[in-house]
Amino acid sequence: MGLFNFNRPSDFLDAAREMADSGRPTLARLLAEEAADRTTDPTAAARIRDEFTGNSLRQGD
């Protein structure tokens, strides 16, 4: 896994893609949800969530 600085939504999204590529779909989904939550554009947030299929794994969702 690469070294990530998690300061921007794109950082979370990059990590999510790397986790998906390495066969860790659960972690990928969680990282993608965080990226979407930090994205100010609702359309972009929806696109991020659509890219990483599956139900939310967060408590309370």
Score class of each variant (00 low, 15 high):
F6A: 02
F6V: 01
R8N: 13
R8Y: 09
R8V: 01
R8F: 05
R8C: 04
P9D: 13
P9N: 15
P9E: 14
P9H: 04
S10F: 00
S10I: 11
D11W: 03
D11C: 07
F12Q: 03
F12P: 01
F12A: 01
F12M: 04
F12D: 00
L13P: 10
D14N: 15
A16I: 06
A16W: 08
A16S: 07
R17P: 05
E18L: 11
M19P: 01
M19I: 03
M19C: 14
A20F: 03
A20N: 09
D21N: 14
D21Y: 04
S22A: 13
S22P: 00
G23T: 02
R24E: 14
T26I: 11
T26D: 15
T26N: 15
T26E: 15
L27N: 10
L27Q: 07
A28Q: 13
A28L: 02
L30S: 01
L30G: 04
A32E: 12
E34W: 01
E34V: 06
A35T: 03
A36T: 08
A36R: 02
D37M: 11
R38M: 12
R38C: 00
T40G: 12
T40S: 11
D41S: 04
T43G: 15
A44F: 06
A45F: 08
A45C: 04
A46Y: 01
R47Q: 14
R47M: 08
I48H: 09
I48R: 06
